[in-house]
Amino acid sequence: MEPKSFISRLLECAFLFLLSAILFQMGIDILTEIWPALAIIAAIVFGLIIAWRVYRHWRDTGQW
């Protein structure tokens, strides 16, 4: 297998850099579209965890 020329390596590097930049931008776009839903889900889960810990503390000790 013969070694690649400098131009072909440069073009391959530029293509991979462009592809990674496009995929990175698409990922950011998807996150900016769905972040309100993710924040709501996180708030609900956080509230449930707090409520569960309060319930367990209240049930185990019988007092608050």
Score class of each variant (00 low, 15 high):
F17Q: 15
I30K: 11
F46K: 04
F6I: 10
I28Y: 02
A43I: 07
A21S: 13
V54F: 14
P3K: 12
A42D: 08
W35G: 08
L16S: 10
C13I: 04
L19P: 03
P3E: 12
I49K: 10
F17G: 13
G47Y: 04
S8T: 14
Q25G: 10
R56A: 06
E2H: 11
W35L: 11
Y55P: 00
R53Q: 13
W52M: 02
F17T: 15
R53H: 06
Q25R: 08
W58M: 08
K4S: 13
E12A: 15
I7W: 15
G47M: 09
L38R: 06
D60P: 00
I28F: 06
I7A: 14
C13Y: 14
S20Y: 04
R9L: 14
G62M: 02
V45P: 01
C13N: 11
R53K: 14
Q63D: 05
L10P: 02
V54D: 06
S20L: 07
L38W: 02
E2R: 14
I49T: 13
A39E: 10
S20C: 01
G62N: 01
L16P: 00
L38A: 10
D60L: 03
C13K: 14
D60Y: 00
A14P: 00
I50H: 02
L18M: 06
A21T: 04
T61R: 03
G47Q: 03
W58Q: 04
G47N: 08
S8Q: 15
T61P: 00
G47F: 06
H57Y: 05
R56N: 01
P36A: 10
M1P: 00
K4P: 05
L11E: 12
I41Q: 10
V45M: 11
R9Q: 15
W58S: 04
I50R: 07
S5W: 04
H57T: 09
A43M: 08
L19H: 05
T32D: 15
L31T: 01
V45A: 11
I49Y: 13
W35I: 13
G62S: 01
E2C: 04
A14C: 05
A51T: 04
L18D: 05
F24W: 09
L16V: 07
I40E: 14
A42H: 06
L48S: 05
G27Q: 03
R9F: 05
P3V: 08
L16G: 07
T61F: 00
S8H: 12
T32G: 14
C13Q: 12
L18W: 06
S5D: 13
F6N: 09
F17L: 15
L23E: 06
F24S: 03
F15D: 08
R9C: 11
E2Y: 09
T61L: 03
S8P: 00
I28P: 06
Q63H: 06
Q63I: 06
L38F: 03
